[in-house]
Amino acid sequence: MSIQHFRVALIPFFAAFCLPVFAHPETLVKVKDAEDQLGARVGYIELDLNSGKILESFRPEERFPMMSTFKVLLCGAVLSRVDAGQEQLGRRIHYSQNDLVEYSPVTEKHLTDGMTVRELCSAAITMSDNTAANLLLTTIGGPKELTAFLHNMGDHVTRLDRWEPELNEAIPNDERDTTMPAAMATTLRKLLTGELLTLASRQQLIDWMEADKVAGPLLRSALPAGWFIADKSGAGERGSRGIIAALGPDGKPSRIVVIYTTGSQATMDERNRQIAEIGASLIKHW
């Protein structure tokens, strides 16, 4: 067993022997301040990774656009098919120029040779490549099948209805392509620590998230040296922004954090800054 596999296998073990965790309302004060600064709703939840206990939450059962955070769930569904012998990570998928959609920095470079399922998941999570996500959605049967996968996990809230990039439209009061912070946090925890996926697939999923290259201005910008984070960000229309993450000190994750916002007129930089400040408060009061 590799060191990384050992780390993920012992996530519940280490967490069980940690000192009790206590909620700190100071972080919620910052979440509410972010709402004021952005002029928009902000949803927040913080779960203990081992027990699933909610440590703090704000608007945990209000719907927010998922945006690209759905790509972690998508690759979880792909990995479940791999575990069941219905898919192979090494299978190569070929596609054409007509398949390319807006923001496809990886797939646009491989029109000639195609990409493997493993490479597509890596591109979808680490670079948020939209064509990679659409190609992977095709392998599982489309958005409705991802929703069905989530329902089978016990998540009857999260739903995907459309493809990239239309799913980022974020129309107010439109339930399409949305989740709730509580539902997303619980589902992410199941994917990373539950028995739904094999140990190898859980490790692969967290490795992809740990290698995320496009979430630097968010929670990662607030992390002290030595902290662990595996995350996936999302951005959408109407001032929408979000991030889902597993993080913790001492090089291992111990909490799940989900943050979503929508309806702001603020710039992307300002949305990023507010999420980073929430992260800084979380870490300060850990």
Score class of each variant (00 low, 15 high):
L135D: 01
L150M: 14
R238S: 09
T126F: 03
S128L: 00
G52H: 10
L120N: 02
A34V: 10
E169G: 07
K71M: 00
F228Y: 06
H110P: 11
L219K: 07
M184P: 00
A211F: 15
T139Y: 09
S96A: 06
I45P: 00
S104T: 12
E35D: 13
R255I: 08
L219E: 10
N173K: 10
E237D: 09
M153W: 03
K109E: 08
N173D: 08
Q204M: 08
L167P: 03
A182Y: 11
L28C: 06
G248V: 00
P172F: 10
T139M: 12
F228R: 14
P217R: 10
L282F: 11
Q204F: 05
T186P: 12
F64Q: 02
K144C: 08
G239V: 01
P217H: 12
A225V: 13
E62A: 05
S68G: 00
D83Y: 03
G52V: 08
R273F: 08
E166P: 09
C121I: 11
F58I: 07
Y103M: 11
I140C: 10
P165W: 12
Q265S: 08
K213A: 04
G39D: 12
R41D: 14
I45D: 02
D250W: 03
L89Q: 04
E61Q: 15
V82H: 07
D155T: 02
K284V: 12
E169K: 05
K71P: 00
M180W: 13
L282R: 01
A276P: 01
I283R: 14
K71G: 00
T187M: 13
L111C: 09
R176V: 13
G114S: 08
F149W: 12
S51E: 11
T187V: 11
T187L: 08
A211Y: 15
E56T: 08
T107A: 12
P224C: 15
V29S: 15
T147N: 04
N168M: 08
D269G: 14
V257C: 08
K213N: 07
L192A: 11
I140G: 05
G234Y: 01
L282S: 14
D250I: 04
D36K: 15
D48R: 04
H156R: 10
Q203F: 07
L73Q: 13
L89P: 12
L160F: 10
A211G: 15
E195M: 15
Q97G: 11
K232T: 00
E87Q: 11
G85M: 10
G251K: 13
R273E: 07
P249A: 08
N134T: 07
Y95C: 03
D177T: 00
R41F: 09
K71E: 00
L188M: 12
V101Y: 08
A133T: 06
S201E: 02
I244R: 00
L196P: 10
P253V: 05
S57D: 05
V157W: 12
T27A: 14
L49D: 02
M180H: 14
E166N: 15
R238V: 09
K71T: 01
L28I: 05
G142C: 04
I259N: 02
I93G: 02
T69A: 03
E102Y: 11
T131V: 14
D155F: 00
G52S: 11
F70P: 01
I283L: 12
T261K: 11
L146W: 06
L74P: 01
L282G: 11
E62M: 04
H285E: 06
A133F: 02
T261V: 15
P253A: 04
A170V: 12
G242C: 03
E195D: 12
L79Q: 04
T187G: 10
L89Y: 08
L199K: 04
A225H: 11
H156T: 13
A34W: 03
L188C: 06
P143S: 10
D33T: 08
S281T: 08
P217D: 15
D161H: 05
R238D: 11
L188N: 03
E61G: 07
T158I: 03
A280R: 13
R241V: 15
N173V: 07
L100N: 13
E237V: 08
L111H: 14
E270L: 03
A133H: 00
R238P: 08
N50G: 09
I256T: 05
M115C: 10
T261Q: 12
E102A: 11
M67N: 15
D250S: 04
S51W: 08
D155I: 02
V117L: 14
N272H: 05
I259W: 05
I206L: 07
E195N: 05
R241E: 04
E175A: 09
G226R: 05
L47P: 00
V157S: 08
I275C: 14
Q204I: 08
L191R: 00
A225K: 14
G239K: 02
D174A: 06
G236R: 01
R63P: 09
S281K: 07
R189K: 15
L28N: 12
I93N: 10
K53M: 15
H285G: 10
G239I: 00
G52W: 08
I278T: 05
G234E: 01
L137R: 01
E87D: 13
V101L: 08
A132V: 01
R91S: 09
N168W: 02
A148C: 04
P181C: 14
P105V: 11
L74C: 14
L199M: 10
M209D: 00
E270P: 03
A84P: 11
R159L: 08
V117Y: 15
Y44C: 02
A77I: 08
P249I: 11
P65N: 15
G226C: 04
A183I: 08
A123P: 01
I275G: 01
W163R: 12
K109R: 12
S122M: 07
G154F: 09
S96D: 10
A148T: 05
E145P: 07
L167M: 06
I229V: 15
F228D: 03
K144L: 08
K144Q: 10
D113N: 03
N98F: 09
V29K: 14
N152D: 11
K109M: 10
S57W: 13
P253S: 05
L79A: 10
T107I: 14
N168E: 06
H151I: 09
I243S: 02
V257W: 02
I243W: 09
A185P: 00
H24F: 09
S201M: 15
L191N: 03
L167A: 06
G194T: 09
S240N: 07
L89A: 08
S233H: 01
G141Y: 15
L55Y: 14
M268G: 14
D155N: 15
L199Q: 07
E277C: 11
F64D: 01
R241I: 12
L191M: 10
P253W: 06
E270T: 04
T116E: 13
N152L: 14
P165T: 09
L192V: 09
E277L: 13
L167T: 07
T193P: 01
E87M: 08
N152K: 15
D36V: 15
S57N: 09
M184H: 02
E102M: 05
L79N: 02
A133W: 01
N130K: 02
E26Y: 14
S201Y: 15
D212W: 03
N98I: 05
P143F: 10
Q204T: 04
A124I: 13
V214Q: 12
T69R: 01
T116G: 08
L150V: 14
L74E: 07
I171Q: 15
D231M: 10
D33R: 05
P249S: 10
A215W: 03
T112E: 15
L167G: 05
G236W: 02
N98V: 10
Y44L: 05
Y260C: 11
A235Y: 03
K190Y: 15
E56W: 03
L89N: 06
T262N: 04
G114P: 10
D212S: 09
G39K: 09
M153T: 06
P181L: 03
R162F: 04
R273P: 02
R238F: 15
G251Y: 07
G242F: 01
A170D: 04
H151L: 06
L191Y: 11
R118D: 14
G279C: 06
E169R: 06
S281Y: 15
T178L: 03
T69Q: 01
C121Q: 02
C75F: 00
S240A: 09
I283Y: 13
L197M: 15
L199P: 08
